[in-house]
């Protein structure tokens, strides 16, 4: 026939699993990028249907949170608002994006149950949809950072824009594999969502987002090395934030996150090979 991706006219549906099945799922998703973007942008449009300011509700609520907690922290810990507020804002925007990636991916399959059980669609499409959607929201949030940077005279490191983009690429890459893995596990064990949600809530306090890691280095060096030096969540924040607030680039962070992204992808693809046949009946 003339149109469509199924116009390749032969389909074989067999009991096999494994890497081949996982890769063909991913290839199929790669071939329907138009659909992935269409679904992601539709999600954003429909989430705020009939509201007046639409997606800027996310921007508004996140900014108010930053302002409130920023103010309290500045007063409590006596930090300089000119350096602290932009630091905290950037870290928090990255953090909410990580949380949205993981939690929304966790329900990506269960939320698309009808489509998965009644149509032929690659599973990774539903993960990519979540990642695109929240990456777009992340760029919305960054709009808030611009006036902040101007008014507070933040020394944005424009020459490091390449590193900044690479940091975002790492965020997306890690979001993809973690999202896929979370979605698979949560489809089978529905407690997983609650578990992850709880863990992320606690992690918000454990990752140096609103507190000063330098203080910890003085008070508790061992905890400092766990929560600050070897904390992949903090690395993920750093690789995007360093260029934004004019800090020196920590090359090691990029390297470690790239290795995590590669290793994690291998695990997630293997999990997909195992689960591809089962997701439909687990739903």
């Amino acid at each position: 026939m003339s149109i469509g991706r199924h116009s390749r006219t032969y389909t074989r549906i067999s009991a096999s699993g494994g890497l081949g099945v996982a890769f063909s799922d991913i290839l199929e998703t790669v071939s329907v990028q138009g659909l992935a973007w269409h679904l992601a942008l539709r999600d954003i449009r429909l989430r705020y249907r009939r509201t007046v300011i639409g997606p800027f509700w996310t921007v508004l609520s996140t900014s108010l949170f930053v302002a409130a907690l920023g103010l309290v922290t500045t007063l409590l810990f006596g930090r300089d608002p000119y350096t602290f507020i932009p630091e905290f804002a950037a870290a928090y925007f990255i953090w909410v994006t990580i949380v949205a990636f993981v939690l929304e991916a966790a329900v990506a399959f269960t939320g698309a149950e009808q489509v998965i059980r009644s149509m032929r669609s690659p599973l990774t499409l539903h993960i990519e949809r979540v990642i695109i959607r929240n990456t777009v929201v992340f760029f919305h949030l960054l709009v808030v950072f611009v006036p902040l940077a101007v008014f507070l005279n933040v020394p944005v490191h424009f020459a490091a824009v390449g590193w900044w983009l690479f940091g975002i690429v790492l965020l997306v890459a890690n979001g993809m594999w973690i999202g896929l893995l979370t979605a698979i596990i949560n489809t089978r064990f529905r407690d997983f969502y609650q578990l992850v949600a709880t863990a992320l809530q606690i992690l918000f306090f454990l990752v140096p987002i609103f507190w000063d890691p330098a203080l910890l280095e003085v008070n508790a060096p061992l905890v400092h090395s766990i929560l600050v030096v070897y904390n992949p969540f903090y690395m993920q924040i750093q690789v995007i934030r360093e260029p934004m607030i004019g800090q020196a680039i920590t090359l090691n962070n990029y390297l470690v996150l790239a290795i995590i992204a590669l290793a994690g992808s291998v695990i997630a693809v293997a999990a997909l090979g195992f689960a591809k046949r089962r997701i439909g009946v687990w739903l």
Binding site: H6, T11, I13, S14, M119, G280
Partner: peptide
């Protein structure tokens, strides 16, 4: 449709599939 994969066995389909299951 290709939504469920078999536990055993094999399905071969020549042609573009469209389904209206719900």
């Amino acid at each position: 449709t290709g939504a469920y994969l078999p536990t055993r066995g094999d399905v071969r389909i020549f042609g573009r599939i469209s389904s209206l299951l719900a």
